[in-house]
């Protein structure tokens, strides 16, 4: 025997299920009057600095069908690369948003400001990105991924550098489709499968 490691174990995840909206986006699913409004309606307030952008996309399953029942959360830095709570962070950026795939079309949409590059341990610099967390029926543990933006300088991003199969880097790139408009489709499984993260 050895000394015990004096640690607890994380609680196991379970799927958020098809009715995740009841708990996380009640107004979205028609439950009014419990909370004044759904949490995470916008990651920015009036006056947020930076370029306004809209990102739209779908989440496709292994058959190419767009999910209608998924929920996404996003977390990001402000236009200067600072997270809420850090010194000098933009007070008009809460950084957090929560949104659902449309029940008819499956499309989701995020209106925000484009984040700046982020500095971390050891002088590492991450290219502008938005962290995503995806939950739905059939997803047993929330999926982490990131939106990067095509056209930015990604040469020194430590995460993108870790992707061995270079064509897969493209699965993390939002594509421009007009002034301030971007598209980011997520493929859960199979051809063109998005790179999911374990960070």
């Amino acid at each position: 025997m050895v000394q015990p490691l004096d640690t607890l174990t994380e609680t196991a995840s379970q799927t958020a299920g098809p009715y995740v909206h009841i708990g996380c986006l009640p107004s979205f699913t028609g439950i009014e009057g419990v909370y004044p409004e759904d949490l995470g309606r916008s990651p920015i307030a009036e006056g947020a600095a930076g370029e306004r952008i809209t990102i739209r996309g779908h989440i496709y399953d292994a058959t190419g069908w767009a999910l209608r029942d998924a929920m996404i959360e996003s977390w990001q830095a402000d236009a200067a690369g600072r997270y809420p709570g850090q010194a000098g962070a933009d007070p008009a950026v809460t950084g957090f948003a929560r949104f659902a795939c449309d029940g008819e079309s499956g499309e989701w949409r995020l209106d925000t400001v484009k984040p700046g590059p982020v500095r971390g341990r050891g002088g590492q610099v991450w290219a502008p990105h938005i962290a995503l967390w995806i939950v739905a029926r059939g997803i047993n543990i929330g999926l982490q991924t990131r939106i990067y933006f095509a056209g930015d300088d990604h040469a020194s991003d430590p995460l993108l550098a870790r992707i061995e199969q270079r064509p897969r880097v493209e699965t993390l790139m939002a594509r421009p489709e007009g002034e301030g408009a971007w598209r980011f489709d997520i493929r859960l499984r199979g051809e063109g499968e998005t790179v999911f993260l374990d960070l």
């Binding site: 399953d61 069908w65 739905a136 059939g138 997803i139 047993n140 859960l188 499968e193």
Partner: peptide
């Protein structure tokens, strides 16, 4: 989960 779990 069969169509929604990453394969890679």
């Amino acid at each position: 989960s069969v169509t929604r779990a990453p394969a890679l």
